[in-house]
């Protein structure tokens, strides 16, 4: 039993080590992609008056922390430059849109929120397609 467990763990470790830098990066951007989708949904629900402004702001702040962390990961990644650039661009778009939403919900600026929702959707779509190609 112990031997089986040890084998299983070693196999798992080996699998992790065998990942290419590109695969590793695409796995590591998973939380950022999820936050983009979350911000899109939160924005849509705010526009539908289903969630309060304070919730959207708190969600934006939580997302910004993770987006910043992912941006650092991308910068330190050994993956191909073109992949890093594509990912980094989407994260920058989402970070800027998040900051815009944070201000817009306070000012009740529905137009900016609606535009930001579309930017989140587009950035998420790019990352989703990249992840699918993994």
């Amino acid at each position: 039993m112990r031997r089986h467990l040890a084998f299983f763990l070693c196999a798992a470790l080996a699998t992790c080590r065998q990942q290419s830098p590109e695969q590793k990066l695409l796995k590591e951007i998973d939380p950022a992609a999820s936050w983009m989708a979350t911000l899109q949904f939160a924005g849509e629900q705010w526009l539908a008056n289903s969630v309060p402004t304070r919730f959207v702001r708190a969600t934006v702040h939580a997302a910004q922390k993770d987006l910043k962390k992912t941006a650092r990961t991308v910068d330190q990644s050994q993956a191909a430059q073109s992949l890093r650039d594509t990912v980094r661009r989407q994260i920058d778009v989402a970070t800027a849109a998040a900051a815009a939403v944070d201000r817009a919900v306070q000012d009740n600026d529905r137009r900016t929120v609606a535009m930001s929702v579309q930017r989140f959707a587009a950035a998420h779509e790019v990352l989703r397609k990249l992840e699918e190609s993994r």
């Binding site: 998973d30 939380p31 999820s34 989708a37 979350t38 949904f41 939160a42 629900q45 919730f55 998420h124």
Partner: peptide, 14 residues
Amino acid sequence: PRGIRVTDYHQAAL
């Protein structure tokens, strides 16, 4: 379907 993973309670709250 939206690609939201729950890594924070704010995501579950929706």
